[in-house]
């Protein structure tokens, strides 16, 4: 087991499989639909938050319109599965719907990114927000296609593929977590690759890289596109879970959610954002069940993290116990 100490791709794949198998076992040990639902959501929102953290934590760019890509993924998947193509594709429908969702959010991110990354700091943040609100307006305006403010109603079929029937709770649970873990492993590889260190370099000192012959803009754009495509994947999984898509997913408040998760979990540890998603979901589920003051509680928790720990929980734990 010596290779567990090494930070490499093989180890990550091994750990990923172990976590996945454990969670599958957990499904049967704790047969509570509510808890399974929370775990699925933690992974979906965790992907969303981790994708945003590529920009915030590693690149130092506060993107405030990330939900645009989440919504793009969700609506693409929903519209795809509602269309007649499903009759033709049959059992291939869901894989192709997910790939299409990723494709559309990738193209959207390429377009929005190419314009936004020219700007710095707050101007970058504002412009990403502006684009998101544009997407939001478009979703509301295209009532015939998107269902406007009602959202994508009427559900859609989920034809089984490779023996996986996403209509069954266990299949959905196993599939969602599997896809999330694969994505997380790939993201880990990206962040620890020379490319990933290029992001840190830009974050640390955006002026210097040009004097090393390094093109910041290109690097930033690629990172932006990757972040957008993972957010799109998260959106498509969310749409599969809810069998629909809603305009709120493109509203600015939806972009704030992954920001909160990053603040709660920590932006300087790789798994911080998913830890944040876990805290966020816990608060969401238990607090809303017991009080109406969800926003107040969330605000207080974030304040206590920011002022008390001065960082996200995982960042704090790693510094405290690991002296990283």
């Amino acid at each position: 087991m010596g290779f567990l100490k090494q930070d490499n791709f093989k180890r990550d794949v091994f750990l990923g499989i172990v976590v996945w198998l454990f969670l599958l076992l957990f499904f049967f040990i704790v047969p509570s639909a509510g808890i399974h639902d929370i775990i699925q959501k933690v992974f979906i929102l965790g992907l969303f938050a981790m994708s945003l953290n590529i920009l915030i934590g590693y690149l130092g760019l506060i993107a405030f319109g990330h939900a645009a890509f989440f919504a793009a993924g969700a609506y693409t998947l929903g519209l795809f599965l509602q269309s007649n193509v499903v009759n033709i594709l049959g059992s291939l429908s869901i894989p192709i719907a997910i790939i299409s969702a990723i494709f559309v959010s990738t193209v959207l991110a390429a377009f929005i990114g190419a314009i936004c990354i020219r700007l710095k700091d707050i101007y970058f943040s504002f412009l990403t927000l502006a684009f998101q609100m544009l997407i939001y307006s478009i979703i509301l305006a295209l009532v015939n296609i998107t269902g406007g403010d009602q959202g994508l109603m009427g559900g859609f079929p989920k034809p089984p593929f490779l023996g996986i029937d996403l209509g069954k709770p266990f299949d959905f649970y196993a599939f969602t977590i599997f896809i999330s873990i694969i994505t997380i492993i790939l993201l880990r590889q990206l962040i620890e690759s020379p490319f990933g260190y290029g992001l840190r370099m830009i974050r640390d000192n955006p002026e210097r890289p040009a004097a090393l012959g390094f093109n910041n803009q290109r690097h930033k754009l690629i990172a932006f596109i990757i972040a957008g495509s993972i957010a799109g994947l998260a959106g498509s999984l969310q749409a599969l879970l809810d069998v629909g898509a809603y305009p709120e997913w493109a509203f600015w408040a939806k972009s704030a959610e992954p920001l909160f998760m990053i603040l709660l979990g920590g932006m300087h540890s790789f798994l911080g954002p998913i830890m944040g998603a876990f805290i966020f979901e816990m608060l969401n589920d238990f607090v809303t069940a017991n009080t109406r003051y969800y926003g107040l509680v969330l605000g207080l928790v974030i304040l206590s993290f920011v002022l008390g720990l001065r960082r996200g929980l995982l960042d704090w734990l790693l510094i405290k116990f690991y002296r990283k």
């Binding site: 990206l190 020379p194 260190y197």
Partner: peptide, 15 residues
């Protein structure tokens, strides 16, 4: 790595 355009590499571990 910047010198040899090696920073586009996503498939190796930097370390």
């Amino acid at each position: 790595l910047a010198k040899t355009h090696g920073l586009n590499n996503m498939w190796d571990r930097f370390a």
